[in-house]
Computed example of a mutant assay.
Amino acid sequence: MAVFGYARVSTLDQNLDSQKDELLKYGCSKIFFEKASGKNLARPELKKLLDSLRENDVVVVYKLDRLGRSLKDLIELVNDLGVRKVDFVSLSDGIDTGTAVGKLMFHLVGAFAEFERNIISERTKVGLASARARGRTGGKPKGLSAAAQKKAVRAKELYDERKLSIDEICKVLEIASKTTLYKYLKFENERLEKVKR
């Protein structure tokens, strides 16, 4: 049985020392140090840790949020450890899946997260149904603002003149990207088609 620690900070200028001290105090024989955002999918040290694990090993973190990018990811990760017969300990959260109470605590956290997701989903469905009953539909409103429509007209004129490049048209009209310009051109072409009908 080996006890592995995992310590992570989000930015390069943050310090790992306090996490390291707590993990050593707990008795970790090896600690994997990561300087990466929790949202970053590429966390090579976490991958090394997971690849090193054997049955009856223990993974220790100072705090739950050091391990997972979100509660969903955290629950999946800890459940995966459970399937591999690896215990999980979060020091500051008082969770130790090697004990019956620790397992219960972690499952309660997961159950509450699932409950919260279901409540949000239910409220969203009720809200959309209520809006539909009043003749409104969800989603982003279609079309362009009045200012954008004017830009679309001018963009089409400049595009049809073929004197300026796409980049130059964007610059002249202060359009942020080529994608936006093409959206304007599409909008104006569709508007003109409707006028012809």
Results as ranks from 00 to 15, higher is better:
V3M: 09
S10F: 07
K142F: 03
K178W: 03
R191F: 01
R43Q: 08
G98Q: 12
D51E: 15
V89C: 02
V78E: 01
E174S: 15
E193F: 08
K163R: 15
E116A: 06
P44H: 08
S92F: 02
L41G: 00
R54S: 12
R134K: 15
R43G: 00
F187W: 08
G138A: 14
R136H: 15
L12Y: 11
R132F: 05
G5R: 09
G98A: 14
N118H: 10
L16K: 02
D87T: 11
V83H: 11
T11H: 09
E161M: 13
K35P: 12
E190F: 01
E193T: 08
D17W: 05
Q14Y: 06
R154Y: 09
I169V: 09
K183M: 11
A131L: 15
T137R: 13
E22T: 08
A152E: 00
E34N: 08
G68C: 12
L173G: 08
D21M: 07
V59D: 02
Y62N: 10
K186Y: 02
T124F: 12
Q149D: 02
K142P: 11
I95S: 03
I95A: 07
L128D: 01
D73G: 14
V101K: 11
A7C: 10
V86Y: 02
Y159S: 14
I120V: 15
A147Y: 05
A148T: 06
A133N: 13
K47D: 11
G138W: 10
E157A: 11
L181M: 11
V172K: 15
H107P: 00
K85P: 00
V83M: 04
L16A: 07
L104A: 15
E157N: 10
T180M: 14
R84Q: 12
L164P: 01
S70A: 11
V101A: 14
M105H: 07
E116C: 09
Q19P: 00
A111N: 04
A36H: 05
Y6P: 00
V153P: 00
A111L: 08
P44Q: 06
S70I: 12
M105I: 07
R132L: 12
R66N: 12
V126N: 09
V109T: 03
G98F: 04
D87R: 09
D160T: 14
R132G: 04
Y184T: 02
E188P: 00
I75R: 05
G127L: 07
I120P: 10
D160Q: 15
K47W: 02
V101Y: 13
V86P: 06
G27C: 12
K140L: 13
L49I: 03
V89H: 08
R162N: 14
G102S: 04
N118P: 03
